[in-house]
Amino acid sequence: MSPTKEKLLSKDLSLFYGEKQALERIHLSILERQVTAVIGPSGCGKSTFLRCLNRLNELNPRVRIEGEVLLDGQNIYSKEMDVVQLRKKVGMVFQKPNPFPKTIYENIAYGLRINGVREKSRILEIVERSLIQCGLWEEVKDRLFSSALELSGGQQQRLCIARAISIEPEVLLMDEPCSALDPIATYRIEELIDSLKEKYTIVLVTHSMQQAARVSDYTAFFYLGKLIEYGPTKQIFTNPQEELTESYITGRFG
């Protein structure tokens, strides 16, 4: 594997919900144009960690964060960082497909408009391109102007991915994107992740170890708010260094 650049670095990152500490001094480096999987049992802080990378945790006023997250060497928690600009660079796909209750077209056009794309022809062009990239174009091209809520769960999730990549972020955060989907829809999303990593740095939180093994290049194992082990996926799954990791991937708990 060719050496790649570090895209994101979480430096001694701790997070508190009120008094309760949910993340403990996470130190993790995420490489450019690689898929990094974050695995661990429920409540281990993997989703919370993901939401630190685009500062989405800030929507909850009870959250307090210590430490730094560097994006291309710049601390995203510094005062100079514009959170709106940050989220344009770091897109996100959520656990439950959450298209807006608008048309399919409008779901993608909204993100473009708030990012300053005004021309209609340009918007239509990007909508088409994003849908093609997500393999959804053929299925929806005749009903772009009907409600996105009429799509199936898997289609909705691919629409959400199309929405996220339409504004061309650099990093794509995916928070258990297949947990609400059936196996076939899951397979399509995994294929999509594989094709997207040519362009984007992807951080994938998943509760499925098979999924992590199938699609990721690097894997981080979280347990009780701590990063237990991090390394190339192959190594984590075949030759883990920590006993806790081994117990988890062999299914002794979780």
Partner: peptide, 8 residues
């Protein structure tokens, strides 16, 4: 959340 994550 979806809207904020798009940079709105």
């Amino acid at each position: 959340e979806a809207s904020c994550a798009l940079g709105a």
